[in-house]
Amino acid sequence: MSECRKYYDILENAVESCGLSFSDKKYEQFIKYKDLLKEWNEKVNLTAIKEDEEIIKKHFIDSLKVFKFEKLKEAKKIIDIGTGGGFPGIPMKIIKPEIEMVLLDSLRKRINVLEDIANKIEITDISTIHGRAEEFAKQAKYREKFDAVVSRAVANLTVLSEFCIPYVKVGGYFVALKGPSVEEEIKEAKNAISILGAKLENILEIEIEDSDLKHNLVIIKKIKNTPKQYPRKAGSATKKPLK
């Protein structure tokens, strides 16, 4: 077992607070993931967070806290849009290995890194897509094919909704991991969410173990098919957000 064993307890507590099980194998996967992130980060920009404890709290625990939303535990097929360093998709996959997980990112270098990490930490049934969310959402293979979409991308909720909601099956969920102040963002996004065939269902406040960090899960339910014209072509959602 790694010298980082001291992190076992906070990871275990975080996982168990979501009603899920932890194990030595999962711990070892997280520690190897952390080490590979640090190693790769010297060549490819994956994260500005470089301290071990901060990686564990601000990336791993923040990511796996999506399971505070109980219905995510039932999702069989999930896509992580704008995954970056693999968040929240890889921590979710470590904790629930039975999920069929897809990671999408627009930067080829990051996708190459994530494929290497997935291989080295020995997670299977995980695939990657290099490209823009707007383009793949138009493909029959991906459009409205997922039980859930998760994203911790930095785009505001109006833009992120146009990227993500088209991937969600009717009856499924888009879960956006957001910072502590989301009220204004949600207010501005409500009409866009409706246009895209969904509705705001809940906002869950998340606390990170052994820290003062508080984040939010914005839970959006897909209630009808997204109109075919959405998402618009690449760049449109950012330049002219839905009103």
Rank of each mutant, 00 (worst) to 15 (best):
Pro91Cys: 07
Asp147Tyr: 07
Glu184Asp: 15
Leu177Asp: 00
Phe146Trp: 03
Gly197Lys: 01
Ser151His: 00
Glu98Met: 09
Leu20Gln: 11
Leu242Val: 13
Tyr230Ser: 14
Gly19Val: 13
Glu188Lys: 15
Tyr8Val: 12
Gln229His: 07
Glu51Thr: 13
Cys18Ile: 06
Lys145Leu: 04
Val154Lys: 07
Ser181Gly: 00
Ile223Lys: 09
Gln139Ala: 02
Lys57Ser: 01
Ser21Thr: 11
Asn45Gln: 12
Ile203Tyr: 03
Ile121Arg: 04
Asn119Gly: 11
Tyr7His: 12
Val159Phe: 11
Lys190Gly: 05
Gln229Trp: 08
Gly86Glu: 06
Thr47Cys: 07
Ala155Asp: 02
Arg5Lys: 11
Glu162Arg: 00
Glu122Gln: 09
Asn13Ala: 15
Thr226Ile: 10
Asp62Leu: 04
Gly235Leu: 10
Ile90Lys: 09
Pro166Met: 01
Ala148Met: 13
Asp147Gly: 03
Lys145Arg: 05
Gly171Glu: 01
Gly84Arg: 03
Phe87Gly: 03
Glu144Ala: 10
Tyr173Asp: 03
Asp62Gln: 10
Glu183His: 15
Thr226Asp: 12
Ile123Trp: 11
Cys18Arg: 04
Leu157Tyr: 08
Asp210Asn: 08
Glu16His: 14
Lys224Met: 05
Thr128Cys: 09
Lys68Gly: 14
Lys239Val: 03
Ala189Arg: 02
Glu122Pro: 04
Asp80Gln: 02
Ala192Tyr: 05
Ile99Cys: 08
Ile203Pro: 00
Glu51Ser: 11
Phe60Leu: 03
Gly172Ser: 05
Phe87Gln: 02
Ile90Arg: 06
Lys120His: 02
Ile99His: 05
Val170Gln: 15
Glu70Trp: 04
Thr124Tyr: 09
Val175Arg: 04
Ala148Trp: 08
His215Asp: 13
Glu42Lys: 11
Tyr142Pro: 00
Asp210Glu: 04
Leu213Pro: 01
Tyr173Asn: 01
Asn191Arg: 15
Ile55Val: 14
Leu160Trp: 13
Asn13Met: 14
Arg132Phe: 00
Lys65Asp: 02
Asp52Pro: 07
Glu42Met: 07
Ser236Gln: 15
Thr238Gln: 14
Phe174Pro: 00
Asn191Cys: 14
Leu72Arg: 05
Pro227Ser: 11
Ile195Phe: 14
Gly82Gln: 00
Val154His: 04
Ile10Thr: 13
Ser23His: 06
Cys164Leu: 06
Gly179Trp: 04
Lys73Leu: 08
Leu204Phe: 13
Gly85Cys: 10
Val175Phe: 07
Tyr173His: 02
Cys18Lys: 05
Leu204Met: 15
Phe67Gln: 01
Leu200Lys: 05
Phe30Ser: 09
Ser21Arg: 12
Ile81Glu: 06
Cys164Met: 07
Gly86Leu: 10
Asn156Arg: 06
Lys138Asp: 00
Ile56Met: 01
Lys32Tyr: 09
Leu200Ile: 07
Ala14His: 03
Thr128Arg: 08
Ser211Ala: 13
Glu100Thr: 12
Lys68Ser: 14
Ile78Asn: 00
Gln29Arg: 15
Lys96Ala: 05
Ser151Gln: 01
Ile126Val: 08
Lys109Leu: 12
Ile203Arg: 02
Lys145Ala: 08
Phe69Gly: 02
Asp24Ala: 06
